[in-house]
Amino acid sequence: MSAKPRVALIAHDKKKVDMIMFVRENMEILSKCELYATHTTGSIIEDKVKLNINKMLSGPMGGDLQIGSLIASSQIDYVIFLRDPLTAQPHEPDVSALLRVCDVHNVPLATNLASADALIKEISLELES
């Protein structure tokens, strides 16, 4: 892994507020990471939480695929994709392609707040070592 953990942040529309709250609650840890996000999610995080984000295209324009490419080329260490399993819209990123590339490249992927909390604990341990 790199000196700074590289974390991708993606959220379906109905999970963007959850993502903002999650990032705020974990700002001390995430501020020490290199952060990547799809454009809309990244812009909201920058605006509301004031963290620097490397923004890809928006999800409907292929930003999730750009993040998938970064995963495949070993440029992302962790993925937090807060997805809406019940009412995701057709224009929103599909977790299945990211799940596949994360599994192929052994990159942890959190899809809900409970698993995101577990990833944050792992990132915190990595930062301490």
Rank of each mutant, 00 (worst) to 15 (best):
T40V: 12
T40S: 14
T40K: 07
T41N: 08
T41E: 11
G42D: 05
G42W: 13
S43R: 12
I44V: 15
I44C: 05
I44T: 05
I45P: 07
I45F: 15
I45E: 08
E46S: 12
E46C: 02
E46H: 03
D47A: 15
K48P: 00
K48W: 05
V49K: 15
V49S: 15
V49L: 10
V49T: 06
V49C: 14
K50N: 14
K50R: 08
K50Y: 07
K50W: 04
L51E: 06
L51T: 02
L51P: 04
N52P: 00
I53S: 12
I53T: 07
I53R: 15
I53E: 14
I53G: 08
N54D: 04
N54K: 06
N54I: 01
N54Y: 08
K55Y: 04
K55A: 07
K55M: 11
K55H: 04
K55D: 08
M56S: 15
L57Y: 08
L57I: 02
L57F: 11
S58Y: 05
S58N: 13
P60L: 06
P60T: 05
M61D: 11
M61H: 10
M61K: 08
G62Y: 08
G62D: 10
G62C: 07
G62W: 05
G62F: 07
G63M: 08
G63R: 06
G63C: 09
D64K: 03
D64G: 10
D64Q: 13
D64L: 03
L65P: 01
L65K: 01
Q66S: 06
Q66T: 12
Q66K: 03
I67A: 01
I67E: 02
I67N: 01
G68H: 04
G68F: 03
S69H: 07
S69M: 06
S69N: 09
S69Q: 14
L70D: 06
L70V: 05
L70P: 04
L70I: 09
L70A: 10
I71F: 02
A72Q: 09
S73L: 06
S73V: 00
S73E: 12
S73G: 02
S73M: 09
S74P: 00
Q75K: 13
I76K: 09
I76M: 03
I76G: 08
I76F: 08
D77M: 03
D77E: 12
Y78T: 05
Y78R: 03
V79H: 06
I80W: 13
F81A: 13
F81I: 07
F81M: 05
F81P: 06
L82N: 07
L82H: 05
R83L: 06
R83M: 11
R83F: 00
D84F: 04
D84V: 02
D84L: 01
P85H: 12
P85E: 12
L86P: 04
T87L: 03
A88P: 02
A88G: 05
A88L: 00
Q89W: 09
Q89E: 13
Q89N: 09
P90F: 14
P90I: 04
P90S: 13
H91P: 00
H91G: 00
H91Y: 14
H91R: 11
E92H: 11
E92N: 10
E92C: 03
P93S: 13
P93A: 15
D94S: 10
D94E: 15
D94I: 01
D94M: 07
V95T: 11
V95D: 09
A97T: 02
A97G: 06
A97S: 14
A97N: 11
A97W: 00
